[in-house]
């Protein structure tokens, strides 16, 4: 089986997980027990996901054009969904909130499903992409984005909990959600910083300019500024709850725009 076939099955695996969990959520009272099973299932899916990424790496070497599977839109999407799934499992273990995962796995599914629209084949690397800085850049950026994705999900739950007392009874505690919103960004922000720095190093090596204000770079800076604003507002101004949750949502919108929306603006950065 090739990595592309595995990814196809995997996409439906995640979808099946969501449906099964929704059914269990409605049908069973004992959430703790079903939760443990679903968490194990999610870990299995993540292992398969990891395997598929490793397999793609091996396949590229078998084709004689070996490179880390982090070099084009398809590979970055597969890795992005992997990092979100990983972050969800970590948060689930750390904070014991299945709801964040229940809302987060659909994001994993959507990212993976979106790869159906693009060319999944392993392509040889054109000269500009032959750089270890690029591998480090993609790796750190998407791990950071995964942190922001988890924060976004928790922020949405928090906003819902704040707007309706009825919903709040079903959701994890507001304090806990607020904590997840904040802690995820605390991890994501340094990773994004590292991602921007390694990206700048790549640009410096490839084109002789570490920063050229192209839309993608500029938007990554916008994202960085929003989360920097979040951290300062929270740590020094004492913001929390609704206001920081809103900032987390805004920040994730900036992430998504940096990733997908920038292609509709004039400029270069055409690889991802």
């Amino acid at each position: 089986m090739t990595n592309i076939e595995i990814n196809t099955y995997l996409t439906f695996g995640y979808l099946l997980w969501i449906i099964a969990y929704l059914v269990a959520f409605v049908a069973f009272r004992d959430r703790a027990r079903s939760g443990a099973i679903f968490r194990a299932a999610l870990i299995v899916l993540l292992c398969i996901h990891t395997g598929s990424i490793v397999l793609r790496w091996v396949e590229s070497y078998q084709m004689g054009i070996g490179h880390a599977p982090l070099s084009n839109l398809y590979e970055s999407l597969v890795f992005f969904s992997w990092s979100v799934a990983l972050a969800l499992i970590v948060v689930w273990r750390r904070f014991g909130t299945d709801l964040v995962a229940l809302l987060g796995v659909p994001i994993v599914f959507l990212i993976l499903a979106s790869t159906f629209l693009i060319d999944p084949n392993i392509r040889p690397l054109i000269p500009a992409l032959q750089s270890n800085w690029l591998v480090a850049h993609v790796f750190t950026c998407f791990l950071g984005y995964a942190g922001f994705a988890v924060s976004f999900v928790a922020a949405l739950l928090l906003l819902v909990a704040r707007s309706s007392a009825k919903a709040a009874e079903l959701l994890p505690g507001k304090k806990l959600l607020d904590e997840i919103v904040y802690r995820s960004i605390l991890i994501g922000f340094p990773l994004l910083t590292l991602g921007i720095i390694t990206g700048a190093a790549w640009a410096e090596h490839a084109w002789g300019t570490y920063w050229s204000w192209d839309p993608k770079e500029t938007w990554s800076l916008v994202t960085w500024l929003v989360y920097a604003g979040f951290l300062h507002a929270r740590l020094s101004r004492g913001w929390s709850g609704g206001r920081t949750a809103l900032l987390s949502v805004v920040g994730f919108c900036a992430v998504m725009f940096t990733y997908f929306g920038v292609n509709y603006l004039p400029g270069l950065h055409s690889y991802f």
Binding site: P215, T218, W219, V226, G229, H232, A233, S236, R237, P266
Partner: peptide, 24 residues
């Protein structure tokens, strides 16, 4: 003041967004 920091961070972000919308 960190209030100034937060204000500046968001203002710079808005300026940067403007720079991606208007052709430079």
């Amino acid at each position: 003041s960190v209030r100034t920091t937060v204000f500046l961070l968001f203002t710079i972000a808005l300026g940067a967004i403007l720079g991606t919308v208007v052709p430079q």
